[in-house]
Design a binder for these strands. Structure first.
Lengths: 391, 391
DNA sequence: CCGGCATTAATCAACATGATTGAGTTATTG
DNA sequence: CAATAACTCAATCATGTTGATTAATGCCGG
């Protein structure tokens, strides 16, 4: 018989165990397009109005959606826009950078509630661990209990293979940061490549005009990327998808040999600070670096488009907005000059998040785990499996 | 209440409208791993034994599965292996090649039942249309009515942008072969790039040891490819995914400038016939071409692996097995010599289908449309949508 | 050598979930 | 007050789940 339309997750409406695909779909539509009434949700999802009623009832009971002010003035019954409830869930994000570690508490609407950071000569496992553990503890202690139990997890954005950066960081080899933190924190810990999290941040919190498929390249001390297919961030079997920095480019090099802040620092002969204020790059050098980087970026963008049929490339990075704009435009020009018979050249645009992308993306890891649509569909009832398909 | 466990598709068990995801999953498991009893299906799919009982009952009633001889001799109740029913469904495939057009009727088990071909100086729209229409008609007329209505569709494997091959083929511009054929045939017509269909053929009918994600490169007159992610062939928003021939390689060229039979023909100064028997290539020239092609292939393989995190590259082509083996091995060597910091180099193996890959893949288009698992999961009940997600 | 028992495959029966449809309710415009 | 639009209620349906049951066999002790 008709299921009792009650919240099926324990009493307190705190869903620590994720959402159904259709609930995720509803949440992501509202996240991307802003508050909307149930009728619009029904149209956009293709679900029946009744199904939307049921799902939204649960989402509201769970504290994830808020019914807004009734909107009158149009023909027919007034509409009730549904909006994300900022307090619905909270997420911790930890970003490990070349010079800067950051920890943030991000709410369900994508706002940074609390932020701490620490500058270091280089990231060391022990220091990072302490920074994260103490920071997370302090943040949790400062929250009222009702809020505290809405913290869904911690996401870590870190470059892979930190030990390749230099001998000082050899300690990272074999250091299981995520596991260690999971042992001392009362929620799950997710870890992902920092450039990939930047892509995820753009997908979840960023521009609202993104297509279902695109590539995202993030230029920081090194360069990396993320791949979005069918609206979902691809991880790949070894969680290494979007490793654009490792993509080969002409000259026996890889993308990150050219399109990375490290390459710029080599040109100017000293390191750049981890914020825009100290960005002192002679224009001539910046111009030359941009030209070099753009060639490499265009090559990688075109390769990606040929392989995966992508209409768009998003370029972002840890640099001042002006530099990013120039890099993006230079890449678009370089792309236009490349031979591309047989495919459409993707559009090239810049990302909207800049230096916060990785940190937001880190917090986005637990968010995605619980609330982002997975692959595609959704059906209805059962716990579909595909265990061992394709051996 | 419990649904009546009856075949829900009209009387004759001829499902012209496709299968549920779980039915597709069951069929694809049996297709890949051979006949297996229900208990194994339950394990592999993760579904309950009861669900398998229900689904297989329907599949058998629909004529898609056959219960085999009961196997005794082990402890416990004897097992009933379930096998694909070769007559369960039939598919037409049309391959348009540089010299050769082929049409085949392929059964549900992947066997070619009937085959016709036509050699031409170059493919012309009118001739191809007539060849396909008349051939399909003749094949259908020769089938008993019961078989005839099991033909699920026609798939066309063709290079894109045929008009770029030369002025003789300008007529292809604007010629809607699929639409024209759909008008005169009693079933749907699917069209896809020929190299991509070759990939699909390997996925559906080919090697049983393929991982869930891999790239497939097919070297014919031109070169192209296909991309398999999460066990499903990716098409992409403009149905141009896997356009590996268009992938840029060093030297301001594209893959198909090097790794294509056309490049080999330029070296030997004349065209090669569309079959192995006439393959007369001086060893020295073949060696030089393989070296050049392998460099380009390795570059494309590594680019793909960096982007999508792929553990495997499959190389196949319209060439003698020995040449293909040499090309594959040369590619593996070239790949090993490339810088690949930050990613794992994919394994490189050769495909199993050779010259028949495109034709089988053409027939595989309607098969996949009806019977291959889509993306991933599967839930249970409803008609999940994701209509406009991601605008 | 035979009969009980563990083991495995498969089905039956009951139930749960989450979608659908169609009818009805409410609030508003014109 | 009719038309319209947003939403809900009630009933139905498809498809999954679990637990109990039936079937067929090898193993093994008496």
């Amino acid at each position: 018989m008709p299921a009792k339309p009650q919240d099926s997750r324990g009493g307190r409406g705190i869903p620590r165990q994720g959402c159904s695909q259709n609930e995720r779909l509803i949440l992501s539509l509202i996240r991307r397009h802003g508050p909307m009434p149930r009728a619009v949700l029904a149209l956009r999802t293709g679900l029946s109005a009744q199904a939307i009623t049921n799902q939204t009832r649960r989402l509201i009971a769970a504290g994830l959606l808020d019914a807004g002010e009734v909107v009158r003035g149009k023909v027919g019954q007034p509409t009730t826009p549904l909006a994300l409830s900022p307090d619905g869930a909270l997420f911790l994000g930890l970003k490990i950078g070349r010079r800067l570690a950051e920890l943030a508490l991000v709410d369900f609407a994508g706002q940074i509630r609390l932020h701490r950071q620490e500058i270091h000569p280089y990231p060391a496992p022990g220091r990072i661990f302490d920074f994260a553990r103490q920071g997370a503890q302090t943040i949790l202690d400062g929250l009222p209990p009702a809020m505290r139990e809405r913290v869904m997890g911690l996401g870590i954005a870190t470059p892979y293979r930190l030990w390749d950066w230099g001998r000082e960081m050899a300690d990272w080899k074999g250091f299981d940061l995520a596991g260690r933190l999971a042992d001392v924190l009362p929620f799950p810990v997710h870890l992902e490549n920092d450039a990939t999290t930047a892509c995820g941040a753009e997908l979840i919190f960023g521009r609202t005009d993104l297509p279902r498929d695109f590539i995202h390249i993030y230029v920081a001390h090194y360069a990396g990327g993320g791949l979005v297919l069918d609206g979902a961030l691809r991880h790949g079997p070894t969680r290494n998808a979007g490793a654009l920095g490792s993509m080969p480019v002409p000259g026996g090099r890889q993308l990150l040999d050219h399109a990375a802040i490290a390459a710029l620092e080599r040109r100017i002969g000293h390191a750049l600070p981890p914020d825009d204020s100290g960005w002192s790059v002679p224009d001539e050098i910046e111009r030359a670096w941009i030209a070099e980087a753009a060639e490499a970026l265009a090559f990688a963008v075109l390769s990606s488009a040929a392989l995966a049929d992508l209409p768009l490339a998003v370029i972002d990075g840890a640099m001042p907005a002006r530099t990013r704009t120039r890099l993006t435009e230079a890449t678009a020009r370089a792309l236009a000059a490349m031979p591309a018979a047989g495919i459409d050249r993707p559009r090239v645009i810049q990302g909207s998040l800049g230096r916060t992308a990785r940190l937001l993306g880190a917090a986005g890891l637990p968010l995605a785990h619980h609330f982002q649509p997975d692959g595609a569909l959704d059906r209805s009832k059962a716990p579909l499996r595909l265990a061992e398909e394709c051996a």
